[in-house]
Every structure is written in structure tokens, then in C-alpha cells.
Design a binder for these strands. Structure first.
Lengths: 81, 81
DNA sequence: GTACATTTGTTCGTATGTATA
DNA sequence: GTATACATACGAACAAATGTA
């Protein structure tokens, strides 16, 4: 079961998606140093445009939850010690 | 002589290219079970980016006109009996 | 068997244009 | 005017499988 994105709510889609992914990280479903779903996959899974998926990941970078390697993917940050 | 792709028209380039290839199939120039031009060749021939060429072929798959064999190419589907 | 070229598959980076709220 | 969101289209890099020399 996946969380769904509300199209007409007050919260922008890219924030909703970032929140969803953050929950998936917190739940341990997305693990440290493992890749997030690709932009393409996020587009399909959550039915958003690529720009929206990218912005969501950008938010997660700003939240210091993931890092991105060009042409490789975005990865969950290992928990700081 | 090849059809040309209009850059600024209302029809997306990838659709235009798909249409061109469909006509080439219908005309018998591209024959059943024979390979389409490779993505690389389509890029050069029609001066489009690889993503555009790929999307065009994807359209032809959706139209059930071709099938793709990974690492081999895309081939014109034999006419159904 | 090895090396090389070809081809599709996948990923992120970037820019532009359109539409809507 | 600004922010959101979508679609198109370019580029770049690397992976993996296949076929050939």
C-alpha cells in the first residue's frame, strides 16, 4: 500500500511526495546507502511529472536525508553518529 | 528522400517520427521481422535526441507495429493472420 | 578465448514552453 | 508577479547484452 498524493490540497505535490518518501525512510523501507526509486519510477508510482519527482528529492536533500550521485541515483544518507 | 520533422509545430517530434516510421512500414520499406533503424541511426537521420528516437519507437510498440529485443534492436511485427 | 563495436536500458542534469491558481 | 505542475526535448554518462573480428 502506498500513500497517495492529493491533487487539490493545500500542500504542493512535491512536498507531499517528499513527506511520503521521508516516512518510507523512517520506516526503514528505504535503507541507508540504498537508492531511492528513480525519477522515472516515482513518476509512474505516484503519477507526477518528472519535475515534481525531482523537486521532491531536492527537498529530501535539503532535509539532509538523501544524497544524489549524478547518473547514478539518490541514496538514503547513513545516520550520522 | 525522407520526411522531415517540423521543430515548432503542434505535433511533438516523437509523434512525428513515429508517424514517419509507420508510413515507412506501411509502404513496405521496413519489412516484417526486419530491424528498424537503430536509435543512433534515427538520431542522425532525423536530427533528434536519443530520448526522442526512443519515445518514437515506444509509440510504435504501443501501436503494436514493432517489438523490441533488448541489446538487439526493434523489429517490424509480422502482420497478424 | 579475447577484444571491440553495436545496441538497448537506465539514470540524472538542464532548458523551454504552456497552463493554472 | 509568483509558485506549482505538466510536457517536450536536449545532453551526458554508465551498464549490460549481443555479435563479430
Amino acid at each position: 500500500m502506498i500513500d497517495t498524493i492529493e491533487p487539490d490540497g493545500p500542500v504542493p505535490k512535491y512536498v507531499q511526495l517528499a513527506d511520503i518518501l521521508e516516512r518510507r525512510i523512517a520506516a526503514g523501507e528505504l535503507q541507508p546507502n540504498k537508492p531511492l526509486p528513480s525519477e522515472k519510477y516515482l513518476m509512474a508510482e505516484y503519477e507526477v511529472a518528472r519535475g515534481t519527482a525531482r523537486r521532491a528529492v531536492e527537498v529530501l536533500r535539503d532535509r539532509d536525508l538523501v544524497f544524489t550521485v549524478p547518473q547514478r541515483g539518490s541514496f538514503v544518507k547513513p545516520k550520522a553518529t
